[in-house]
């Protein structure tokens, strides 16, 4: 029987994690030695908070390191502890959501990314709003460059018939004529 990832997974720990517990968990998850050493060097509160997150989301080594790096950079920037970042309300709200493990991981990652890159996230939000303003048909999808590191957008059209393709293309053509379309490229080119 498939284990229920949400209901049966234990709540975050609040007591300090011992080295033995952490090593056992790391061995189970096959974390690298460097990861474990780095972890053991953390302040006890930070180590425990990270343990709670890793256990909750059953993180692999790379997943752990990605989230950890962002959280650590937020902590350094804001002058707070790693534990504080991992227990911030938006992060905890994501962690509390009743989602399958992969969806929850994605959600937590999205939240941490927004905290890590607030200015970039604001520009991305504005661009997404502009894309919505274009009023494109549902069959046309716009993808912005990852981390906005590029000056081209990708357009994907899904059509099951010539008529559907014509309708999608017509909607797209109309959108290209709107000032909003130019505003998208302007926003992509240079920060406001």
């Amino acid at each position: 029987m498939r284990r229920n990832a949400i209901a049966r997974w234990p709540p975050p720990m609040h007591d300090s994690v011992t080295e033995a517990v952490l090593r056992a968990f790391a061995a189970e998850r096959r974390y690298g030695g460097a990861t474990v050493d780095r972890w053991l060097a953390l302040a006890p509160g930070d180590g425990t908070a990270l343990f709670a997150l890793a256990r909750e989301l059953r993180l692999g080594d790379n997943q752990l390191c990605d989230l950890w790096e962002w959280a650590e950079e937020i902590a350094a920037r804001d002058g707070v502890s790693l534990a504080h970042v991992l227990e911030m309300e938006p992060v905890m709200a994501a962690r509390r959501r009743a989602l399958a493990r992969n969806d929850k991981l994605k959600h937590v990652k999205t939240v941490l990314r927004r905290l890590r890159f607030p200015q970039l996230a604001a520009v991305e939000d504005r661009l997404q709003a502009l894309v919505r303003e274009l009023g494109l048909p549902d069959t046309v999808r716009v993808t912005l460059p990852e981390f906005l590191e590029g000056d081209v957008i990708r357009i994907e059209i899904v059509a099951g018939s010539a008529a559907a393709l014509r309708a999608a293309a017509a909607g797209l053509l109309a959108a290209t004529r709107s000032p909003t379309c130019a505003a998208i490229f302007d926003a992509l080119t240079e920060a406001p």
């Binding site: 920037r77 890590r116 970039l120 590191e149």
Partner: peptide, 9 residues
Amino acid sequence: QLLGSELVP
């Protein structure tokens, strides 16, 4: 502080 900058790959 630089490590906290919004640097993207």
